[in-house]
Design a protein around this nucleic acid. Sequence first.
RNA 1: GGAGAGGUCGCAUAGUGGCCGAGUGCGCUCGCUUGGAAAGCGAGUAGUCCGCAAGGGCUCGAGGGUUCGACUCCCUCCCUCUCCGCCA
Length: 418
Amino acid sequence: MLDLKLLRENPEKIKEGLRAKNSTLELDDILRLDETRRTLIQETESLKSLRNKANEEISALKRSGQSADAKVGEMKTLSARIAELDTQGAKVDEELFSKLHYLPNPPHESVPRGGPSENKIVKEWGTLEPKFLKSAQPRTHVELSESLGWISSAKGAKLTGSGWLYYQGMGARLERALINFMLDLHTREHGYEEVSPPFIVSRQTMTGTGQLPKMEEDMYRLRDEDFFLIPTAEVPVTNALRDAVLKAEELPKKFVAYTPCFRREAGSYGKDTKGLARIHQFDKVELVKFAKPENSYDELESLRADAERVLQLLGLPYRVVLLASGDLSFAAAKCYDLEVWAPGSEKWFEVSSCSNFEDFQARRINVKFKRGHTAKPELVHTLNGSGVALPRTVIGILENFQKDDGTIQIPEVLQKYL
RNA sequence: GGAGAGGUCGCAUAGUGGCCGAGUGCGCUCGCUUGGAAAGCGAGUAGUCCGCAAGGGCUCGAGGGUUCGACUCCCUCCCUCUCCGCCA
């Protein structure tokens, strides 16, 4: 959610940001509602002030044993008027804040303006040739995983449906090895605290980080309770500090969590239907940071470096893409995608999105910090990024490290986990 | 699942219709004191909204109701705890 004050004082700047994100929402409605709201508040509060004074008088009269009937009678009409104004105010508030909730976060000034064609490749790492292939043509992860018996999409389909996978043998062990490798790296070398949240959360929690109300059809919802399967660990881990007031010295707070992620992928039928690229349940190690506003962009760079380190240690070729304004997600002010090259599929696969949300999420879930004992609380900045998503990393491992005989050379850093 | 108890300012508590936005203790911050500390003493210690400001409004789990007036009475919901049952 955006800051109303900022919006009121600097509407042109916000408008530019919203246009850059292709938001069609008009600000003027919101500004008008804001105006009405403030006038209404002033009128209501001056009446309430009167009422409070009168109540003191009534109370004094009663205590001294005098009759307060006349005063009480007067107050009846005043109270009725206040009730009316309160109702009106609540209506305006509801309309204003529901509109405000649909305004996206404007992009940071360092973000290129435009659609996906303006995305900037800011870094490339590694070589694009399969490392252990001498003569054979590179195969895709779809072929490799099935022929090795590491993954069965048939069993997944039998148990649940299309887009669900069944990992077996070395496939299952590789998954576990990757999770442990990433958690160890981020906790031991990058200073993150490991947490393990619930995989099912309430509607309020889903709303806090912005998945609801807009994306409800992409989420799995339970039948008997108003609960949802998490689409990413970002949801529970960010919401864990909802309504907290942190101390400045505690920042940045850095958390890492492994969770499965559940996505309906509604509307993406026919896209990547085979293999590991787009599935309804996948494992992910997620990084979440709470930072001071003045260094949140430095924290974004180090978050990105932490995620990149995973790919570097695995030896996977990747590139870093700075997303253009039109390609940014609703809540992000700036975002880097990490994409792994898959020489069999001849495609780049996104394995991580590292974003700074500035105070957009923090305002919504009320996470603040204080610079001193008596200082006024300020909103923190929140950031997160995958560190990294597993199935597409497995695509990278399969396709980059395949050998002529159809087996896979396991990256050295994973060997002790297998 | 059944039965009961309860949610107040970081923690523990007081408060049952009107000088209670809220007392006390602990904790914490600053100061005095000290060679330094402890103890002691003093001051401070929720958030939010409107307002240039002065100031004012709102918040005692959440929402609604009764009332001139609600921490206090009524209703609904949420959460926590205890006991029983079931159970990895």
